[in-house]
Design a protein around this nucleic acid. Structure first.
Lengths: 157, 157
DNA sequence: TTACAATACATGTATATACATGTATTAGTT
DNA sequence: AACTAATACATGTATATACATGTATTGTAA
């Protein structure tokens, strides 16, 4: 059973918004929370948190090449993630291994263990299934969202 | 100076996405993180976290009526927020007051203090200014986002 | 009316976020 | 080459998230 509250108005019990733009801000925040909740519930079956999964997924992108902490950090969705600490938990679960870089001893290089690869593959399969199940929008609508969100972010000051 | 990474591909250093739908998921998560970061930086000037601000804003909606903890909780954007603990911090800063409900002694009723109202008003002004500055999309685009995000969430299983 | 379930909130725990600081190593400057 | 700055990461702190458990109060049913 998933949390199913379609309308933002119902979700946050509020009907007055200053503008569509402000409502869009709340909608983005709420939808992200909803997505994270659904994904986390699935990942829990594999003993992973959302952030731990993200690190594994990033490592997989270069596997079997090693990656240093800062290269993982700059690929994280949430840039303020404390990557060394997330790696701590993954290391305890023997899903990744740490080593000091030969080339630059300041760097710690991380690699996926075989068990890390296995857990990642299984959890990715489960996540994809959940995505197919809950995100039933069309590719066209998804494209529109991607365009619009990049428009939202295209500002500096 | 704001974080300005327009394209998702740059932001998370990834170019391959399984589908537009999956990319939309990442885009929603990343945009939410970006929005929260910008807002939090502004709120810091007032000694507030994003969540503390949310609780104040919700209380304002009924002010000067009192609200109990569960009524605040169900209006939060992030439903898993631990509202009693957020109220702890606000109480220490004398922005809200706790009292036991007369009608039902299990309930704790919360009210904004005068200083709470003042801080909320000032921070809301600052946040609105930031919103105007960074969210320069049109009302029409914002409406499209609202429609599409509600389409994204309209699924259960 | 007593017993039990449900409700409302407080509190505890593990992990994450956001940010500051500490420590080792490398790069750059004189 | 010695000194200083910068870099990479580890670690510390306050708050939040996500969830479990504890405690007081209320509702309900025998």
């Amino acid at each position: 059973m998933y949390i199913c509250i379609v309308k933002l108005e119902q979700a946050i019990q509020s009907t007055k918004f200053k503008s569509e733009v402000q409502k869009a801000g709340l909608n983005i925040l709420y939808t992200a929370w909803w997505l994270k909740t659904v994904m986390s519930r699935e990942l829990k079956e594999f003993g992973l948190t959302h952030e731990q999964y993200n690190v594994l997924r990033i490592l997989k992108g270069k596997h079997p090449e090693l990656m240093c902490v800062k290269d993982i950090a700059c690929r994280m969705i949430e840039k303020s993630s404390n990557v060394p600490r997330i790696i701590d938990r993954l290391e305890i679960k023997k899903l990744v291994k740490r080593a000091t870089s030969e080339a630059d001893k300041r760097e710690t290089v991380i690699s996926l263990t075989q068990s890390g690869v296995a857990v990642l593959e299984a959890s990715t399969k489960a996540l994809n299934a959940i995505y197919d199940e809950i995100m039933t929008i069309s590719e066209e609508d998804a494209s529109s969202i991607n365009e619009l969100l990049e428009k939202v972010r295209e500002n500096e000051s």
